[in-house]
Design a protein around this nucleic acid. Structure first.
Length: 788
DNA sequence: AACCCTCGAGTTCT
DNA sequence: CTCGAGGGTT
């Protein structure tokens, strides 16, 4: 029996030793990786490390969350979890020329209302790596996430923990409750070369460039592999911050990071004005080859935090920052041919087939030529030598033809095909459009394939297991015709298809090869199809592949109309009153549903068990849009503009009365207008449309939830929005106002209660001042909304 | 009518 | 990422 008192003492000693070792090892790591100033020999470090590992193995409860032993990697994850960023990770606007920089500087000075004075900019290098968010809570590293689409990324905590330069516990005493550190993960050029050497020796695939190597390492589900790759991290920005005041400038932020032990690039500088920016660019450009990491440009940010806030954002990019990119690497190669690809909408896109050439570390063999006009403008011909680059360092692009190298005799100029290369249908190019299209519709197997691919896509029905190859086979061997056929596939049919596909391709059927039928993939696919039966309404609408209906328009339809039943029967005029839906888009949607075949295909999907989720009553916001005047004007009757439709309505004309009694109300309208109206009404179809619209309007109105009546602080007040607000879009501001019972209108009059003016406000602001209407800025509006 | 911005559609390679 | 087109503003 051991003595309990001695046992206690031993445990206390172990606890102290673990703490001491953790602190010391972390100090050495920081000195080595961040300060570039090693404090002990590697062998000594390893000895301490092994001692800590042993202690932790004996007393697992003593392991602290910042223990360096956590950095060796953990067992593989099944997958990466999604992480929603507290503050979105935005992108930057790009500049390429001196002019772009001067323009940027001017916009900044205008935005800040500075005339003569030079602006202070924080300038830094733009690493060619991957943007990452590190979350620290009370000083401890909690989570790391990739940028993803900016709103949500993937949880790569286990992988990031293996990067030795990243502190698992922040240093110093100014520790925030919450801190999101934004920065770049990358691989140094030398480490990349060593890694590729190892890969080569091991007979493994080499990486094309340091960026891909870093990305590949970060995407490892097994963080023990990541731990063997030498990744680096440098911070350059901030997301959420809680518990400590925001530093007053970007340079102060980075200084603070240094005191916290977070690695920050040494290549940073505060410069003045456009001249300062250009000088920094030239300096870094000259030293680019000797920097240990790859960069694709430099970044400028207005230094003062306060000024940054004043400048605000345009859509997804801040107005206070600019990425000044180096010119993309270019290469010469030959055009072997120009093929035509047929897209989902029938768009016929010429694609240049190129002799393989390495551009920026990636071998390029194809490059889009966009459309007929583009090919002719650049005059690209088969056999030509062309200059290729990767636009934004990603997508290959033919810059121009080297005419001197054109073969003799000159090849003929490019000519768009007159028949679809896939289905033989004739090709049409609409007046005023740049794109030629195959007229075959779903008869064309290329378009059918694309329709399935779109339908199954991640942002649509998200059918797992249904990739390009299976779609092609399903369509080619005619196992599916319409979208709904997916839902009647069975294991037997899929396996039969596989056998036939193998036979057709001349490969030995796996059935023969292995003596039994492998069914895993087919089971997975069927499970994926089954799992897709309950899509959110907006994704289902998007998946249908209606022209001009993308993610955002589908969302508008779902939000405003609430259910598929209304969307599928809405005439164009009704769709036209929804935000961001104009004539073209409204017609496109109405035409889609007017097509009997489409309605049947839709019904077949519903009958197959596809049930859109999240259907609800139409939005209360629809009420104002359903006013007689608005709807009447939206129909698009010739010459019947909004003010005239208003006149008519004031005289008691309604959709119903027009439909019932024809053109007997238009006394007092200008003759030409009355004439056009009478003519329009003479068409029986139009009268029917009116009646249908009226009926649908009444039904929608009866379904609308009551307007949030009580608590309407802004009841009866009319607002006009103008200019750009710093932190919200006009639409968002309008939503806030309407939610509080206020009304938003387009033009300033005596009846206007308030004008909310942002920057670059124009004539509306002037008119408000003239009429003595109260003027608010964004803060003023928020204050008004906040008071009781 | 001339703009600015956003959205949709097409595309490359790993 | 890029282009073109659509929608909205000035």
């Amino acid at each position: 029996m051991t003595d309990p008192i001695n046992q206690d003492a031993a445990a206390r000693n172990a606890a102290q030793r673990v703490l001491a070792l953790t602190a010391e090892l972390n100090r050495h790591l920081h000195a080595y990786h961040v300060l570039d100033n090693p404090t002990i020999p590697d062998a000594e470090y390893d000895k301490l490390f092994v001692e800590l590992q042993a202690l932790e193995a004996a007393h697992p409860e003593l392991r602290t969350p910042d223990s360096p032993t956590l950095r060796v990697g953990a067992a593989p994850l099944p997958q990466f979890e999604q992480v929603t960023h507290t503050v979105p990770m935005l992108s930057l606007n790009n500049g390429f020329s001196d002019d772009d920089i001067v323009h940027f500087d001017r916009r900044v000075r205008e935005g800040l209302g500075l005339d003569g004075a030079e602006v202070d900019y924080a300038a830094e290098v733009k690493f060619d790596g991957l943007a990452i968010n590190l979350r620290y809570e009370n000083g401890l590293f909690i989570q790391a996430a990739t940028r993803g689409d900016g709103a949500t990324g993937e949880d790569v905590t286990a992988n990031i923990r293996t990067i030795s330069g990243i502190p698992l516990r922040l240093h110093g005493d100014k520790i925030p409750a919450v801190l999101d550190v934004r920065g770049e993960v990358m691989m140094f050029k030398a480490d990349f070369a060593r890694l590729n050497e190892r890969q080569r020796e091991a007979g493994q695939k080499e990486f094309a460039n340091p960026r891909n190597a870093a990305a590949g390492s970060l995407r490892q589900l097994d963080s023990r592999i990541t731990a063997q790759r030498k990744l680096r991290f440098y911070a350059y920005g901030i997301g959420a911050l809680d518990g400590v005041a925001m530093p007053v400038s970007h340079s102060a932020l980075l200084d603070w990071y240094e005191t916290l032990g977070i690695p920050v690039s040494k290549e940073r500088k505060v410069v003045q004005g456009a001249q300062g920016l250009l000088a920094y660019y030239a300096d870094i450009g000259a030293r680019r080859p000797v920097l240990p990491y790859e960069i694709d440009g430099v970044v400028y940010k207005v230094n003062a935090t306060e000024d940054q806030q004043e400048l605000g954002f345009v859509s997804r990019a801040p107005r206070f920052a600019l990425a000044h990119k180096f010119p993309a690497e270019e290469a010469l190669t030959q055009v072997l041919g120009i093929d035509i690809q047929v897209g989902r909408t029938g768009a016929m896109t010429p694609v240049a087939r190129l002799a393989p050439v390495s551009v920026g570390g990636v071998t390029v063999t194809n490059a889009t030529l966009h459309n007929e006009d583009e090919v002719l403008r650049k005059d690209v011909r088969v056999g030509d030598t062309v200059i290729v680059r990767r636009a934004g360092d990603v997508i290959p692009e033919v810059l121009s033809v080297v005419l001197e190298k054109r073969p003799e005799p000159a090849p003929p100029p490019f000519k768009m095909l007159e028949a679809c290369p896939v289905c033989g249908s004739h090709v049409v190019r609409e007046e005023g459009e740049a794109i030629a299209r195959c007229s075959g519709g779903l008869f064309c197997s290329a378009q059918r394939k694309e329709a399935f691919r779109h339908f199954a896509g991640r942002r649509m029905m998200d059918i797992e297991g249904l990739g390009e190859r299976y779609i092609d086979t399903l369509v080619e061997l005619e196992y599916v015709h319409g979208l709904a056929d997916l839902y009647s596939l069975t294991l037997d049919k899929l396996l039969e298809m596989k056998v036939r596909a193998d036979e057709r391709d001349g490969s030995t059927p796996e059935t023969v090869q292995q003596g039994k039928i492998p069914t895993k993939w087919a089971e997975n696919l069927l499970a994926g199809i089954e799992a897709s039966k309950r899509p959110p309404l907006e994704r289902f609408l998007f998946a249908l592949g209606i022209r001009h209906v993308g993610e955002s328009t589908a969302k508008t339809l779902a939000e405003w109309l609430g259910s598929l039943a209304y969307v599928r029967q809405a005439p164009a005029a009704l769709l036209r009153v929804l935000p961001d839906i104009g004539g073209t888009v409204a017609e496109s949607i109405a035409d889609f549903f007017a097509e009997e075949k489409n309605q049947q295909a839709l019904q077949a999907l519903l009958d197959a068990g596809v049930t859109p989720q999240g259907e609800h009553a139409p939005s209360a916001k629809l009420r104002t849009q359903l006013e007689q005047t608005t709807l009447l004007a939206a129909i698009g009757i010739p010459k019947l503009t909004e003010p005239r439709s208003k006149q008519l309505v004031e005289r008691g004309v309604t959709l119903a009365s027009l439909a019932a009694q024809g053109a007997s109300f238009h006394a007092g309208l200008p003759a030409a207008v009355a004439e056009a109206l009478a003519q329009w009404l003479a068409d029986e179809g139009n009268v029917k449309l009116l009646a249908q619209l009226d009926a649908l309007r009444n039904e929608l109105l009866s379904q609308l939830p009551e307007m949030p009546a009580a608590g309407g602080k802004l009841d009866g007040k009319t607002f006009v929005l103008t200019g750009t607000l710093p932190n919200m879009s006009r639409d968002e501001a309008a939503e806030l106002i309407e939610a509080a019972g206020g009304k938003v209108s387009g033009s300033v009059s005596k009846k206007t209660g308030y004008v909310v003016a942002g920057s670059d406000a124009g004539s509306k602001l002037a008119k408000a001042q003239e009429l003595g209407v109260a003027i608010l800025d964004e803060a003023g509006l928020l204050a008004l909304l906040a008071q009781d």
